[in-house]
Amino acid sequence: MTSSPPSPRLSSLTIAADVDEISRVSAWLEELGEQEDWAQQMLFGLELSVEEALANVITHGFENTCHDPEIVLEYFRPAPEAIGIRIIDNGVAFDPTAQASPQLAENVEEARIGGHGLRFMRHYLSDFGYARVGDRNELTLIAGPKAATDGAASP
């Protein structure tokens, strides 16, 4: 496969490492979706995937670190019919794409609290890629037809 130049960033948002910032991210995505007339189902799945990824970065990405957290979201279009969000943070290195989704529980007593975020990302996204670039994690989430975005999130 020939490598293509990265898609240009169309919008970006910088947030603090605080779960309440997720409300601002949702508002940003919904505004982009309204401006560009994204399909409702695509917006729902992308918003959910971005929230799950960010909740993990904010909650665990800066444990036992002493530098100032930096989290930036970038919006780009990897293909005309696809939407991409790249989450860049300077937290500890962590590749969510390498983690397995936990087994589903059969009853409330055995159900584990947590672990569904990855399952949602794998369900709703057409592509999902990770790279460690210098001291930063770059997680790329793409919503769109699978054939059109195959490999688009790969570094």
């Binding site: 959910l48 799950e52 909740a55 409330v108 159900a111 609290i113 569904h116 975020g117 949602f120």
Partner: peptide, 13 residues
């Protein structure tokens, strides 16, 4: 999101 599900699961348990 999974955070909302988590709240329901805590209550369910």
């Amino acid at each position: 999101s999974s955070s909302g599900l988590r709240a329901l699961l805590v209550a369910g348990k």
